[in-house]
Design a protein around this nucleic acid. Structure first.
Lengths: 240, 240
DNA sequence: CCCTTCATATAGCAATGCTATAGGTGATAC
DNA sequence: GTATCACCTATAGCATTGCTATATGAAGGG
């Protein structure tokens, strides 16, 4: 019921904490369970880490490095905003794959005191966005862009974690990601003059859809389906 | 050192919890402190609320109502997306003014289980976005829009709460708000340059029709026809 | 061999959420 | 009036939590 006794107690404590955090389904992980699994008594934990939070910080540092370290020394693309997109995706993936670690890092918000993990994540993003600003791709000051993107990134990840794994909709991530990145980007492909569709009733909407379908002939429906679909549309727009 | 003894114990407990949550600077609030301040012993708390979480839920329900209730019965603007903007701002304001209550509501993420407060907030937003979809102002399906907006909204609020009050940058909120709302909106036309305009207007019309059908429940189609019809609509409105 | 220093253990404290059990209090039935 | 019964509250205490005062062991330098 305990770990590799070849390792020094400090490492065993870290390993035990990781394992318990990964397996306890969101329930709190006690120092006693950790020390027990590590085959060690309480004072050793506090000797090495000072705190329970100190231990978790050490655990989190490992996980953080594990997912983001490669990003630190990485050669930069010529498109910094693509780097930002990749970091966003890595962030979300980390949250999904290690929800407990993620919640230790970003889930414990306390008023008026930023966690240093948030600061680290900010720094990583900041680097990319400074580069983007230099290249003239930014619409707003880098610090503002960083906060907006990171806030949305964390919000999306928390929401995905909270959702039952079965019904997780990952488009949420892509959509929100592109939304905030586009908003801070100056080379935004804002193809404007999309005429607002004035539809306030079923009938008007049906007519609009009918017209749109006939003109663009999309691939989502087979021809027979399309035929029936248009017939129903006709029926809807006739009556009422 | 205790509250109005005219009130029944249940109310005193609620009042004490509110007061302690508001004054303790992010530190945990214990049941003992609450019962002590309420001039009541432990079993009364558990008799009335079952749980510590039950008590907090009741407290939160009050705060929730306090800030969002007016929104529920409110007359709707002719511009639903403006309603969404107003709700976003109210959400952030609530988080800033009552950070402890807010954190009880939205700060305790646990893997795989959505809090019912999130569900309530979703429902409120959903209402507005359904209206927006009916009016043809939406670019994506309402449920997706709701999640994206709410996730960003919570993320921004959490980040603002975590920042030292002195250096809070509220432009973060406006910026991110407009980013996500614009992204789901068809009016502002962030059309991806890759997708042809005709297709996107089909999508908008399909979403609008879908929303209109679901809200008005017309008689022109049988229930089986309606089911298939909606399924096709869903397929069309998926921007592959 | 003694002394210092680091690392671990024994034992226990105060605070936490919660509960088994009993007492009290009011309304209703007779 | 009195008995009954449901509801509300109190006494006392349990198990678990994070953490620590103190002591013991081992390793190395003088």
């Amino acid at each position: 019921m305990s770990l590799d006794f070849q390792l020094p107690p400090r490492e065993r404590l870290l390993q035990a904490a990781v394992e318990l955090l990964a397996n306890s389904d969101g329930a709190a992980v006690s120092t006693r369970k950790i020390t027990e699994l590590a085959g060690v008594t309480a004072p050793t934990l506090y000797h090495h880490f000072g705190d329970k939070e100190g231990l978790f910080d050490a655990v989190v540092a490992v996980g953080f490095e594990q997912y983001f370290a490669r990003e630190i020394g990485r050669a930069n693309t010529e498109k910094p905003l693509d780097d930002v997109r990749r970091m966003w995706d890595q962030h979300v993936r980390f949250g999904i794959e290690q929800p407990h670690l993620y919640l230790v890092m970003f889930g414990n918000v306390r008023p008026g005191s930023r966690s240093n993990r948030v600061a680290e994540a900010e720094a990583l993003l900041r680097e990319k966005l400074d580069r983007a600003a230099e290249a003239g791709h930014l619409n707003v000051a880098p610090p503002d862009a960083v906060r907006s993107i990171l806030a949305a990134n964390i919000g999306v990840t928390l929401m995905l974690i909270a959702e039952p794994a079965a019904e997780r909709n990952f488009e949420l991530s892509d959509m929100t990601r592109d939304a905030v990145i586009t908003a801070v980007s100056s080379d935004a492909g804002i193809a404007d003059s999309a005429t607002p569709v004035e539809t306030s009733s079923v009938v008007v909407a049906a007519i609009a859809l009918n017209a749109a379908l006939e003109s663009s002939n999309p691939q989502q429906l087979s021809s027979t389906e399309m035929k029936m679909f248009l017939e129903w549309l006709h029926r809807i727009s006739k009556t009422s």
